[in-house]
């Protein structure tokens, strides 16, 4: 490990923030070391994660529901499967309600993001975050953490979409419109078709896709570094 990498690795940032931060659920999260990027992918725990949001802009839009479940190595456990609704601070725009089916009256009875977030952070501790097009999940989470705890969120992230792009690149196949959608990608791996746009189902769907993608890798040994986008 070069000094440069050492200085800017997220592990260092974790240490840095841990020392700076007042006690909070985020700090609890940072207290657990991140999974080692050099370890075999099977030794790592992942948290398959998905949100339903009011839109795609992390600064403007709100998280409506969070679904996640854990993957221990090559095995996804439904015992930890969790689905939580959050109460948005604004009115749910009609066009997004069409997508996820979460109505105002349902959402208004839910807990606030402040109440929900500690659960998620506890689940994430020591795990790599896993999502399809993880940028959204990562940025929304980071944004939320900044707003609520004053510090950003960092962590190891595995993005099934990014993995799929690599597959296309390695096979030198052009990517067509829609190829990388979760449902279409899953279809290529022979995975069943699920109802989309429920945070938990999508999280499970992404988790299954991940297992399929790793199983289909040609390399003899795969370490976390080979899979992660942020490490």
């Amino acid at each position: 490990m070069t000094i440069w990498q050492h200085l800017f690795s997220i592990e260092e940032r974790r240490n840095w923030w841990m020392r700076k931060m007042p006690p909070s659920p985020l700090r609890d999260y940072y207290e657990v070391p991140f999974p080692d990027v050099e370890s075999d992918w099977r030794q790592v725990d992942y948290l398959a994660l998905d949100y339903e949001t009011t839109g795609l802009d992390e600064h403007k839009d709100e998280i409506l529901s969070i679904g996640y479940t854990t993957i221990n190595g090559s095995c996804m456990r439904l015992a930890d499967a969790t689905h939580m609704l959050t109460r948005p601070r604004c009115v749910i725009p009609g066009e997004s309600a069409v997508v996820h089916g979460i109505m105002d009256d349902v959402a208004s009875s839910a807990e606030t993001l402040e109440e929900v977030l500690p659960h998620l952070l506890r689940a994430l501790a020591g795990k790599a975050m896993l999502a399809h097009y993880a940028t959204i999940e990562y940025h929304f989470l980071s944004n939320a953490c900044k707003r609520i705890y004053g510090f950003p969120f960092v962590g190891r992230v595995v993005d099934t979409l990014a993995l799929e792009v690599r597959v296309f690149r390695s096979q030198e196949k052009p990517i067509q419109q829609g190829d990388l959608r979760l449902a279409n990608t899953r279809n290529r791996y022979g995975l069943p078709r699920y109802r989309a746009h429920n945070a938990l189902i999508d999280a499970i769907a992404a988790g299954e896709l991940f297992l399929a993608q790793v199983a289909n890798r040609q390399e003899k040994r795969t370490i976390l570094k080979d899979l992660a986008v942020v490490s």
Partner: peptide, 14 residues
Amino acid sequence: SLGDIEIRYLRRGT
């Protein structure tokens, strides 16, 4: 009983 389920993906040829 759902909570007891673990999901696994087995590649062809395994």
